[in-house]
Amino acid sequence: MKDFEYFSASSLQEACSLISQYKDVGKVLAGGQSLITLLRQKLISPTCLIDIKGLKELDYIEFDKKSGLRIGALTTHRAIEKSPLIQEKYNVLSEMEKSVASVQTRNWGTIGGNLCSADPIGDPAPSLIALGAKLKLVSAKGERIVALEEFFTDYFTTIIEPDEILAEIQMPPPAPNTAVEYMKFSTIEAGIKIVSTSVAITVEAGSDVCKDAKIVMSAVAPIPLVTKKAAEMLKGKKLTDDVIEEAAKMAASETDPTSDVHASAEYRKEIVKVLVKRAIKKAFEKAKKA
């Protein structure tokens, strides 16, 4: 590992001023669960790290019936997984968090750090996108709100400016007659995801008709992929097995996966079909009961 200068920010304001000062050579350090490996492998060698992990002001889970859920960017994965509030109102997040790396990583790693690392196989992004998450980005100059769907631009790349810090993840209140399901597929149980998907289904109350749908996949494109055609096709339809299967096939056709040691591109497409089908079914069943 190369040497670097280290600053520990004591407030968000200080962090913003540090990052605006060092934006060309610095990196923000949160839990570092990806960053430290990258530093060790010399894949990145910033000359300065601005440590924000200690900022209590960005560590919270708050809910309001009107405005929904707000999670501070430095909330750990484990805190989200174990939060009774999230388990009750956004259970998919709690379930999804169980798939994030290991307990040790979830204990130290933060949700904001995870999103900013923009790993195409990251667990949280698909579910958060399916839930309609928005991000609050702050800098010394001010703040802006962006949809998580618009956040990622390429492998390990986001729209975040070098002087910005991700401060908060926001989600609307749980929609009625809606369920969100997360499913992953890997060779070993806790292995690298070959494909994962999060599906949100809203049904017309008391019917089998799909009112709204969102299908998000990871590991099949450089960024979390939000299907357009497949979700659109479900809307207004009775969710029969045939319709669901058709949507899953359509979702697969929208992906552009690559081959690696874990799976070929062709196989990933096949798995998308199965996983999306299963996730729609499960979400559909739950939505009917919701």
């Binding site: 350090l29 570092g32 669960q33 990806s34 430290i36 060790r40 992990k53 307990v103 040790q104 130290w108």
Partner: peptide
């Protein structure tokens, strides 16, 4: 040394963490 095996697990403030992936400064 890449945060995958857990052999370096220690407890920090009651939480298990992987010591290879936490800076001492933290």
């Amino acid at each position: 040394m890449d945060n995958s095996c857990g052999a370096c697990t220690v407890i920090v403030n009651k939480m298990a963490v992987k010591a290879c992936s936490v800076l001492a400064m933290q």
